[in-house]
Design a protein around this nucleic acid. Structure first.
Lengths: 149, 149
DNA sequence: ACAAATATTGGAATAAGTCCAGAATTGATG
DNA sequence: CATCAATTCTGGACTTATTCCAATATTTGT
């Protein structure tokens, strides 16, 4: 992707009424570089990028960015919150139960909600979150290796 | 449901090779009485039932019961782990983003996985977890009340 | 340059879950 | 019924993830 296609983080922040700070720019870059990263992953990447950042600032930044729709917050069962910059296509995730590896899976519909509940109980449903669980090829291969007696 | 239809917790435990203890029986009863309860909810219910139980014993019990398929562990984004005794029908959940109220939604298929990923990446998929997010009727009504200036 | 508003810092605190040694209980066995 | 091994429970300590908070720093508009 040509660098001209990568939106300027500072511009993104301004467009959404957010103050531009070095920390926020670094957080955006970190989330882009490491999809599905945790706050710790992001903090580490930011540390490598601009030298240092408080955990509070990471929490504040990802929270604000997610609220504005600039990044997406996901949190599969048993996981801390994770962040990705692939937004707007309602893609799903496929996660290995053994090694926790996660891959993106396109949504057949492409927007929310992509499923209809059998009964909506009068709720105004805005999203059908889908997570596919299973085992990745590597863990399947490792699991079925013959046991040496 | 006639009480004869309610499986005896002790018998359930024995059938699954688990030792029968007062704590485990009380945990099973608590999860049945309070679907979608957290460990704290269960501990409180058990406390009312048999007087006392350690948090560790609650964690151990629900963990073991879930492993054996006697109860189900769910953990929507932003929530601690929750437990329910409605197992085997792959039902989904509908959660209010405002008040966190959760209701069960029947699965159109009734067994896992109930959806097919656009690309399975060679994974062996055993479940498509679906969570519907939105706002419940009460929160919708409260939100659209005219603002008195 | 200045000042208000916002953001960051660096801790303290809370919530959720795990680890652990010792005590208690369960259930098989004789 | 007594005994004992295995398992479970207890009551803390500990870890991870996230939030709270006062003081300080930075951004941005004037």
């Amino acid at each position: 992707m040509p660098s001209s296609d990568v939106p300027d983080p500072a511009e993104l922040l301004r467009q959404h009424g957010l103050q531009v700070t070095a920390q926020r720019i670094a957080v955006i870059r970190a989330v882009s570089a490491y999809p599905h990263g945790t706050v710790d992953d992001v903090a580490e990447a930011v540390h490598d990028d601009i030298g240092s950042i408080s955990r509070q600032a990471v929490y504040d930044s990802v929270g604000m960015l997610a609220e504005k729709g600039l990044i997406r917050r996901i949190q599969p069962a048993g996981s801390p919150a994770r962040y990705e910059d692939r937004v707007g296509d309602n893609h799903h995730h496929l996660i290995c139960r053994t090694c926790d590896q996660m891959v993106d899976v396109d949504c057949a519909v492409g927007y929310t909600p992509c499923l209809t509940a059998a009964d909506d109980f009068g709720y105004e449903i805005d999203e059908a979150e889908v997570i596919y669980w299973g085992r990745c090829p590597e863990c399947m291969a490792a699991d079925t290796q013959p046991v040496v007696q």
